[in-house]
Design a binder for these strands. Structure first.
Lengths: 189, 189, 189, 189
DNA sequence: GATGAATGAGATTTCATTCAT
DNA sequence: TATGAATGAAATCTCATTCAT
């Protein structure tokens, strides 16, 4: 189970630091930022970064796995806290920074995405995250909050894309989301 | 009108060839493609490309101006051909390849976008294109096709973003567009 | 036949300059010298070097093809100038700087050698060079200058290895060669 | 004799382990192998390696001293076991793996070799080994097995170089050695 | 003393841009 | 004017060596 021989405390700290830093930098400047920029911002040398993540692809996959996991937790928290599935969904969409980061990653170049998926760890957690999201949407449909004629995948795809809007459009996103959700809602009249 | 000294016939041909080639290559491979790749595909040397467009930014601005102009024509054609503004809008959104390319360019990195806008030619035609689109949406609102509580800018922003979905999501876009337009539509019940 | 579209005069000059420089540098410092060192000594930028030879392997293969060709000419010249095959052989071995360089390349790491051989141009000229050398040795055997009980390949392998001695042993090589040739000679008593 | 403070048992074990591992790795992959590769194969951390051998040069010198010592023993064993000096020489050349490794090290880049020699320990044992080899060759000459007109140094240099042939030529070495020794032999007719 | 994590200098390679032909 | 060769700055990645645990 634990293939990795358990990192030293300082190493684990750095590992985590690099992933969160990389997540932030990717979100801000895209996936093409120099590796050195990530290292600098994390306060480590490039060598350290490369020791943990042999190339950019590995780093991206690690960031992806990390954010997938965070989203999964947010989904569960939202489902637990909200009175109805619909409510959970809207809270999640407007409140989860992790989800925003994740959809950014989700719309990467197919090539990069393939590499993310070939890392079994990220693939597994990705699937688990997707299952949780689908459950949430399905529950909302079953309770009658979502139009019966739109599929779960359509809902997730569309709202994901809206969330994936770039920083330059960040101000508009909440309203766009509102309009889209309103359009997906059943029994409007 | 003729600010530029008249170009030789072959030069004008090259100019146009480079712009359309660059538009296609940008759409396929993103804005970071090597300049040499664009030149090769256009069948000219890099030197020729640089003679016309002193750097990448200028080329992007020129491509943008070109597609803005093409969109403007599409808007006018749609408005002329369709029975109602709403109809014109839906046709335009689903039918204009130029529009798709334009929104791709429109959601570029802010830095690049700034350069596009500092080129006065593209800025002018951009504003003209936007005015035409706004007119179209305003007409649709006035005729009562669009919900009165959403602004023109909101409509344009949201549908633009949906159109800007990457090639990997191309299949979903028509449906997303349908759902979004349906949600923006007035009197649905 | 002429796949290459004929280089410009200055480009051909550089091409040749890089190959001869690389040959010298490889001979002096081994195959691992920084590419930049080769470029600097040739008086060109690294970019130029990489434009002609996409990676180190291509450069090595080109150098190899070049020296193979030069050896081939030396073999022919020696055969034409010397009264007997044996004479031609001894002259060639002691006088051909090209041959010395070639055997250095010939004893490269198998991995590098494989790449040299996968370049069809160098492979062809290599085979031609080897055929000429074999002919020379065979002629010497047929005339009775070389012991009948040693094969052509054995002769070539052994003398090649002696010639491949490093710069630090350069002083000894002529004597070593003399001793080895003397040992290979027939009718000694 | 005991200049070094006595090492702990495990430390001495590591010291020896690293040297023999390094000898093997150098022989297989050349002197440029990553230090980490040596450490890994020896089953120790890099830190341990560096604690014993402050840099690569020191490690090489230590490996050299070690193989020199082993060759010295092989020379004595061969001299003791063989009926004649000539016999001892031929056995040694064809049978001593240590000798093969040593000549490989001996033909290193002059720069590296200088460092090997500046380490007094390896220099001393090197001289002792050379003396034993020279004695052996001298004895063979005195008994009339070796041509009187070739010097001891010439014999040693030439046969060393033949033994230094790379792994890719390993198959040919025994025959090359046979031919060379035959050529050095006196009274052949 | 042993370990392996961190560092940063250096090598490879790419590409935007300039300039000789 | 068109071409594509030359340049060098910047990015990726590796590894010798140092140092915290």
């Amino acid at each position: 189970m634990t293939r990795e021989p358990a990192l030293r405390a300082d190493a684990r700290r750095n590992h985590h630091l690099i992933i969160t830093t990389a997540a932030a930098v990717f979100a801000e400047d895209g996936l093409d930022v120099p590796m050195e920029a990530i290292a600098r911002r994390a306060g480590v040398g490039v060598g350290t970064l490369y020791r943990r993540f042999p190339d950019r692809g590995e780093l991206i996959a690690a960031v992806a796995a990390h954010t997938f996991r965070a989203v999964l937790e947010d989904v569960r928290a939202a489902a637990a806290a909200a009175p109805t599935p619909w409510d959970a969904l809207t809270r999640l969409l407007s409140g989860s920074e992790n989800l925003r980061l994740t959809v950014h990653l989700a719309f990467l170049s197919p090539h990069t995405w393939t590499r993310v998926h070939s890392a079994s760890e990220s693939r597994e957690i990705h699937d688990e995250m997707m299952a949780a999201l689908e459950t949430l949407v399905n529950d909302a449909r079953r309770e009658g909050s979502i139009r019966a004629d739109v599929g779960t995948e359509e809902v997730l795809g569309l709202v994901s894309w809206v969330l994936a809007a770039p920083a330059s459009a960040a101000e508009s996103v909440p309203r766009w989301l509102e309009l889209v959700l309103d359009g997906l809602r059943a029994h409007r009249y």
